[in-house]
């Protein structure tokens, strides 16, 4: 056997594409435009590292307060942190209760069989998309105006936004199921409810649970911020003491947030891995 024999097969020449020159020219133009836009953006955002260095000197006073957290506010902070976690819990539960039944109506594999089904599918999908498009912060602003300052508008904002997120995730996991068991339930003489409850649900339940836990986790972090627009929880405290320039109290809040968020984050990650392994 000679080396030539082992050399194998040469790839056939690539087919000459029409407009190859025009296309490569256009690519160059697009690249150039991107670079130019980035340069402009640096100017517009007044990006200037020197300014940061100059500011660092005046931040010295703030820093000295921050390294001395004021622990006297801890009891009220704990109460507010608890409120934040509760807001996230109720908001997430609200979202689960609404998006769970809706997600079956937004799953292609269950709905595209009939004309009426296709209409329902499109409508529910649209609702999910619209809800997702509104950031919880914007929704919270709206609900504070409607129902007043406090945790309730925060719950509504988190809940509504999460309906869009969970609805999309739930319906996509329904679309990814194995159709085999569904066919088996039909062949056993199961009715429409049984087909979904026994053929679809057991396949998606662990995923649904994992997504819900993850959503609660995200909502805790979001609800911290929501307080800034008056929607309850620890964010409201942060805003108040920042504007009163009481940085040692702000510092205590930061430490607490860091601990709670990290702890819940790893707890939710651990739980989700357990679900994935099952």
């Amino acid at each position: 056997m000679t080396a030539e024999k082992a050399a194998g097969v040469a790839l056939p020449a690539r087919a000459e594409k029409p407009y190859a020159r025009a296309v490569s020219f256009a690519k160059w133009l697009i690249g150039l435009a991107l670079v130019a836009y980035t340069a402009l953006a640096v100017v517009h955002t007044e990006f200037n590292p020197l300014k940061l260095l100059a500011g660092a000197a005046s931040a010295k006073e703030i820093l000295s307060e921050i390294v001395h957290p004021d622990w006297s506010v801890l009891p009220s902070l704990l109460r507010l942190m608890n409120e934040t976690v509760e807001m996230a819990l109720i908001g997430t539960l609200l979202a689960i209760i609404i998006s769970f039944p809706l997600s079956f109506l937004a799953a292609k594999n269950l709905m595209l069989g009939s004309a009426a089904g296709r209409v329902v599918y499109a409508v529910v999908r649209l609702i999910f998309n619209v809800l997702r498009a509104f950031e919880p912060m914007l929704l919270a602003l709206l609900f504070v105006l409607m129902v007043g300052i406090g945790p309730f508008p925060g719950v509504l904002a988190l809940g509504l936004h999460s309906v869009g997120m969970l609805g999309k995730l739930f319906s996509e996991s329904i679309e990814a199921i194995d159709p085999g068991p569904v066919e088996a339930i039909q062949a056993c003489g199961g009715n429409r409810f049984q087909v979904i409850w026994y053929g679809v649900l057991p396949q998606v339940a662990p995923t649904f649970l994992a997504f819900s836990i993850y959503r609660w986790d995200i909502n805790i972090r979001m609800s911290i911020i929501l307080g800034i627009v008056g929607a309850g929880g620890i964010g409201y405290f942060l805003l108040q003491y920042l504007s009163l320039l009481q940085y040692s109290k702000v510092s205590t809040a930061f430490i607490l947030i860091l601990i709670v968020v990290t702890a819940l984050d790893s707890a939710s990650a651990w739980l989700r891995t357990r679900l994935g392994q099952k």
Partner: peptide, 29 residues
Amino acid sequence: RRMIAMIFQHFNLIGNLSVLSNVLMGRLS
């Protein structure tokens, strides 16, 4: 379908459920 049972090439069991639950599916009707 209550009187006609079917067995499938890929078994079509629900992997997350117990063996007994899968057999009980035959009693759904």
